[in-house]
Design a protein around this nucleic acid. Structure first.
Length: 271
DNA sequence: CAAACTCCCTGTTAGC
DNA sequence: TGCTAACAGGGAGTTT
């Protein structure tokens, strides 16, 4: 569930909290969260490391670390239920705190994740993990022409395409549904049929919505404890309610095996 | 390239 | 009311 705006909010907070921290111990509560590694290796890779300023790439949190002369990167993906936050070491851990870095000044970074889908990587080059991601939708160099060029090369339906992280990075189910509703386009519309005006509508609304959601600290998933986001989706999770534009009933359909929320009146296949 | 399906997990929800 | 089974969901990987 954490998508670009939620991860961005998390990273902005971590930027103020992690720089200069020195790792004195680690804890892994679920081995499968370290693909291709082990808690022992993980510990060895981070012990004594100094953390630098984190950044976001797609839905990943990238934390540069220096261990002696070694430059490495701790990369976290929270998948569905992961939440990443700094706590005082005094504060009791939850049973779901599966990745924990304890620092030398009485605080620790905890990725808590009840569903254990989250992943943590340590790599020399971030591209080993995030190298295949598509462009950042909010990058100032990523223009509407660029977006249209990418779209023209694709054949699939809009929704799975926008969800595809190698096509564009950071969108998930919520913001794809919100973007398509705002652009008044059906999620099953093939990319080949999208004309420039429509492409621009997707581009413009996608950026507007992502920016607004970041400003609101993301969407509140009911676990408001950590994100506390105030973004209010127009269609996502709103099935049965009236579309705020036309008052027709919002429906939940299945597209590419994903729950998808649309206004059947605003979002039609043919115009 | 694309679509469909599997896997990883467990809290939530629908069904009995 | 209490229990169980189905389901959701991000993304990587596999198969068609």
């Amino acid at each position: 569930m954490p998508e670009l705006p939620e991860v961005e909010s998390t990273v902005r907070r971590l930027k103020k909290q992690l720089v200069g921290k020195v790792v004195i111990s680690t804890h892994i509560g679920w081995k499968n969260m370290l693909p291709g590694s082990t808690p022992q290796k993980f510990h060895k890779e981070l012990i004594g490391a100094h953390l630098r300023e984190p950044l976001r790439r797609g839905k990943y949190i990238v934390i540069p670390a220096e261990q002696g002369q070694q430059e490495k990167y701790l990369i976290l993906h929270q998948k569905m239920s992961g939440r990443t936050k700094v706590f005082s070491s005094e504060e009791a851990r939850s049973a779901y705190d599966h990745v924990v870095l304890t620092f030398d000044d009485g605080v620790e970074l905890r990725m808590t994740d009840p569903r254990k889908f989250g992943r943590a990587y340590i790599v020399k080059d971030p591209n080993q993990v995030v190298g295949s991601l598509g462009p950042e939708p909010l990058d100032k160099h990523f223009t509407s022409s660029h977006f249209f060029e990418l779209l023209k090369k694709r054949k699939g339906a809009l929704k799975p395409l926008l969800l595809n992280q190698t096509f564009i990075a950071g969108l998930g189910n919520i913001y794809v549904d919100e973007t398509l509703w705002a652009a008044k386009l059906h999620p099953l519309l093939p990319a080949t049929k999208v004309i420039r005006i429509q492409s621009d509508l997707i581009y413009k609304n996608m950026r507007r919505i992502l920016n607004a959601a970041i400003k609101a600290h993301g969407t509140d998933f009911g676990d408001g404890v950590i994100y506390g986001g105030k973004y209010r989706p127009k269609v996502y999770g709103q099935s049965g309610k009236a579309c705020s534009r036309c008052r027709h009933e919002i429906r939940r359909i299945t597209v590419a095996m994903r729950g998808t929320h649309i206004c059947p009146h605003c979002q039609k296949m043919k115009k």
